[in-house]
């Protein structure tokens, strides 16, 4: 897999999350309430990052290489194990960028985004 990363900094907080190479599940969360604050929760190697905004998008003419800029976090690479998965992630990322809705995502030890809610 290509490992090109976005080079442009995201606002003042540049902490590009480096991504390594890299049975049908279903969503379990309910829509967030306004009282829910931002949080990061870890389960094993998984980390849930909650209530974030997507403020940038990046892609390149390489196979399965698309990233989203997460406000306060930096660039995060989208899971690249499947054509359809990475396109679905890109559509959701674009939606989050356009609407500025809250995003909850699960990041694994490879530093890629493997699950994503957009509200």
């Amino acid at each position: 897999m290509p490992d090109t990363k976005p080079q442009q900094d995201l606002l003042s907080s540049v902490s590009t999350a480096g991504a390594g190479e890299g049975g049908a599940a279903a969503p379990t969360a309910e829509p967030p309430t306004s009282a829910e604050g931002g949080a990061i929760g870890a389960v094993g190697a998984s980390v849930w990052v909650n209530n974030k905004k997507i403020n940038a998008l990046w892609s390149i003419n390489e196979n399965r290489n698309s990233w989203v800029g997460v406000a306060g976090v930096g660039w995060v690479k989208l899971a690249n194990n499947s054509d359809t998965a990475i396109v679905a992630f890109t559509i959701l990322g674009a939606n989050a960028r356009q609407t500025q809705g809250n995003v909850n995502y699960r990041q694994e030890s490879d530093n890629m985004m493997h699950e994503m809610y957009v509200w």
């Binding site: 969503p27 829509p31 998965a85 959701l92 493997h114 699950e115 957009v118």
Partner: peptide, 29 residues
């Protein structure tokens, strides 16, 4: 209301007002 996806082939869901999570047809790409 919401969208969800995961690192699996053709697996995305939409949260519809008054209905909750609904899977999006995955017959082909």
């Amino acid at each position: 209301i919401g969208l969800w996806t995961i690192d699996q082939d053709r697996n995305a869901w939409a949260y519809l007002q008054g209905a909750g999570w609904r899977k999006i047809a995955w017959g082909n790409d």
